[in-house]
Computed example of a mutant assay.
Amino acid sequence: MADGPSPPPRAADQEEVTHRLERLISALPTKADLSDMVADLRENFGREVREIRTEVSALSTRVGALEEVAQRPPPEMTTTSPTAFSELQRRVDDLDNRGRRHNIRVRGLLEVEGPEDLRAILTELFNHILNRKLDTPIHIDRAHRALRPQPPPTAPPRDVICHLTEFALKESIMLKARSSRQWDFHQCSIELYQDLSPFTLAARRCLQPVTQALRRANLPYRWGFPFTLLALNNGVRHTICYPTDVPAFLEALELPEVSVRSWEDTARPRPDLPRPRRRRSRRRGRASPDRALARELSPPHSPHHADV
């Protein structure tokens, strides 16, 4: 059955469509509305740009001030800074020496070619000093030579530094070792010292003129920790802790003036560590099996034979 022609639209529907179109058209922004929107956008963007410019200007000012401060020479140290640094250095040096309390430095022990059993040698040496059986066990945690290259045969041997587990035994050895400056052991003249930090050794070397003056005046003295030189005179104890204490110390003990270097300005000596040896490649100088076989099979080269 064929479809018939569509019925004509009703007047009510046409009016409804017309009203909807009118409402849509009336809801569209006008030219004035678009102008207001563009003006608002310009104002907002302009305000944000001005804020960014203000922040960038402030950052530029701060960076310029920092660059100016960085280009200035460093300010001179105040009078309290050297004292604070000196006290810190003494404390660090004291910690270093406390870590060496169990150590003994043995000087004069000849070096031998190849590996040496330092624990066995030191055990025999310490038992010899203590007048005990040479095979009496002594617990030695570690023992090694001073960390520097091995000297030539004509130079003195390197010191041996060892760490004993028992502090009381270490003190007994050092107390007995003080009864004699040198000990004959295995045809060597052995000396025993307390292992001290490089800073303490440098400071004691700087104060040698003072200790020599004390010995000439028969005034007893001893070393203290943190680094201190103590002397007793008429029941009064006098001390040197800093280089600035030397003049008052000499005046109080009525000793002649001596020249003493400042041990705080002395640079700490760096240990001469042995340079690592370069390992040679095992492949260098070795021919591969294929090349060796080719050389064996190839005929001997002779000027009478032409190269093929």
Rank of each mutant, 00 (worst) to 15 (best):
P75G: 12
S81K: 07
I104A: 07
R72C: 10
R98M: 00
E87T: 14
H102I: 03
R105E: 13
T79F: 06
P74T: 05
E76S: 07
N103L: 02
L88M: 13
I104Q: 04
R107P: 02
N103I: 02
Q89Y: 09
R91P: 01
R91C: 11
R90F: 04
D96V: 11
R100H: 05
N103Q: 09
R72S: 14
S86D: 05
T79L: 08
L88N: 10
L95F: 03
R90S: 15
G99Q: 07
P75R: 12
I104R: 02
T83W: 08
M77C: 02
M77P: 06
M77E: 15
T83E: 02
P75N: 01
Q89H: 06
R100T: 05
L95E: 05
D93I: 01
R101Y: 00
L88I: 04
M77G: 03
S86E: 12
G99N: 04
R90C: 07
V106N: 08
R105L: 12
L95H: 09
I104K: 01
R98S: 01
P82F: 02
F85A: 14
R72I: 01
D96K: 04
D96L: 09
E76R: 08
N103V: 01
P74G: 08
P82Q: 07
S86T: 13
T79M: 07
A84K: 09
D96M: 12
T80H: 11
R90N: 13
